[in-house]
Nucleic acid binder design. Sequence first.
DNA 1: ATGCTCTACAACCCCATCGTTGTGCTAGGG
DNA 2: CCCTAGCACAACGATGGGGTTGTAGAGCAT
Lengths: 116, 116
Amino acid sequence: MESIWNPAVPHPLPDPLVELIAQRFRVLGEPMRIKLLDRLRDGEATVGELQTALGASQQNVSKHLGLLYSAGLVSRTKRGTSVVYAIDDPTVFDLCEQVCGGVRRRVSDLDALLQS
Amino acid sequence: MESIWNPAVPHPLPDPLVELIAQRFRVLGEPMRIKLLDRLRDGEATVGELQTALGASQQNVSKHLGLLYSAGLVSRTKRGTSVVYAIDDPTVFDLCEQVCGGVRRRVSDLDALLQS
DNA sequence: ATGCTCTACAACCCCATCGTTGTGCTAGGG
DNA sequence: CCCTAGCACAACGATGGGGTTGTAGAGCAT
């Protein structure tokens, strides 16, 4: 577990970088946005498709997609009267997978405690 | 980039799991908590040490540490009158490192745009 | 026992953000 | 040309979370 730290990552972290990191995590800290990204794993989709897929209002979906776009996580392309969104930063999936691992480990720990 | 998905991660993500993932990310979405974890990279520390290291109020530091403890990211040990905290889930550093990579990539992209 | 240090808890205020409602804009169809 | 569909933006109320203040409890010294 003695991981070698990326030499390009300073220590202690300067405040602006801390802010950027926290901001990045905060973008992923909303269930709706996680669902949107999860849906986009199947490929690009329009706002309407995402709206019906998640059962949310058009304005809300558009709002969160705008945030994801501002964060550089998704791309936006006009096609006819629709707007097509797609994953632009696939590394978010690695993040989610790692988080899933942590969550699973924690849950199984709780399981073990409850069953002992 | 055609990553094979962990078969244990269902798709689409069920709502409870989405909630857990978002919750995990939200814990890391605060600068103060990032700083605390970053400081704990050097090893265990008491509340007072973390307080002076970050220049924050004792109550605020204690509050955030409590959250990190509830999330299972740090461990808590009483030692004399002090309480010693330490990293309990080293995977958070991998997360931060990945995020740093994404941030750096994005910043360099902006750099390239500005210099072109 | 008294006082001091270290920490956690609770109540409060404040701000950010979520979801909704209402509306304006653009592209296609009739 | 008008109408509709699809989407984004702005404003609103409501909720959640951060930071502060005040305080209680635990451990050690005198």
